[in-house]
Write a protein that binds this DNA or RNA. Sequence first.
DNA 1: TCAATATATGTACGCGTGTACATATAGTCT
DNA 2: AGACTATATGTACACGCGTACATATATTGA
Lengths: 194, 194
Amino acid sequence: MSLPHALLGLIRYRPATGYDLKNTFENSIHFFWNAALPHIYRTLKQMETQGWIVSNVEPGEGKPDRKVYRLTEAGEKEFLRWLSQPPENPEPRLPMLVKVFFARQMPVREFKEHLEKWRAHYAGLLEKYEKEVAAVIEQYSLRYDASEDACYWRLTLDYGIRQAKMVIEWCDHALEGLQTAATPPNGLDAHNPG
Amino acid sequence: MSLPHALLGLIRYRPATGYDLKNTFENSIHFFWNAALPHIYRTLKQMETQGWIVSNVEPGEGKPDRKVYRLTEAGEKEFLRWLSQPPENPEPRLPMLVKVFFARQMPVREFKEHLEKWRAHYAGLLEKYEKEVAAVIEQYSLRYDASEDACYWRLTLDYGIRQAKMVIEWCDHALEGLQTAATPPNGLDAHNPG
DNA sequence: TCAATATATGTACGCGTGTACATATAGTCT
DNA sequence: AGACTATATGTACACGCGTACATATATTGA
């Protein structure tokens, strides 16, 4: 799993609380790795036990106390070790393709609706990537003087854009194929004309 | 989660044991949804408890007994309900992109090696898809007279092919970008020339 | 005034799932 | 003769992670 190392990498930029990390996560790594708040807190605790980070409670004025974590030398070492590690290939987990696999068993009209929903979802993602996310990267790059890092952030964004475009093209291709096939001879959706 | 419904769909084609299902899985759904043997047995037991399937032990001659599962009416109903359900969008989980995000922190040479390994992995997948998997689909299509289903199986294969090609192109794009940038001014890998 | 939201920290529970282990038979290869 | 592979069924354990819940303060909007 990548979460501890993702957090290690973010804390390495600058010390942070669990809440801080959640916010940073939502603007970046969130797009290719999930993490809910309770999960982040839990992982931070484990990481402290392992000696990768240490915490320091800063009393909050009016607001709740802030438990700020920073990297230890062991954490730094572990992070770099993980980075140099040979790549882990993602194991595919695409629930939508499971439905496609069995789509013969559903009315064609319904399957088309599914395809159109997927298309819309990825079209929305694509727009978000090209507008919001691209802007956030430039923001962070300027705010923290991180133009060197930003090159790599843009690479992850580029992956997302290509992925979204690929799915959109695949949906269009699938919809075209269904159009020419029209109603299949078995007449599965004959009871739903039009 | 999709596993119970994937199994429901496979058992619907014809009654099967856990072991049968594992083999069928490896030739099909395996490419977009994972399932190990213990997981399949566990899930079958849960599905029987829910009344979606029933088992029938066939004594094996010489070989171990076969516990053959077949669909109930409730299982049939649940499967079709799941199929018609609005699509679940995959939550991205791409450990390799997490490394890309922090790649500024590693020597460029090492990052290039990572990219080349990813490229090789997806090139291998692409070849497997275009040769083996395409052939397996035609085999199943003929053996079980399932040319109608095969259209949809080919759609999932087409997705895999597009995905693999996309990642390969992204890797090439990234490698090009690193080539022109040459060694970055910070000289992170200056201690490793050549 | 009441509700919602942001800041900030967590605990408890349970599900999904991966890895390792246990068991038994038959055939094949070295 | 011994090792390995295929057939066939599972159990046990542990980890990752998502959901719901608990707590406390300050500000904003209806």
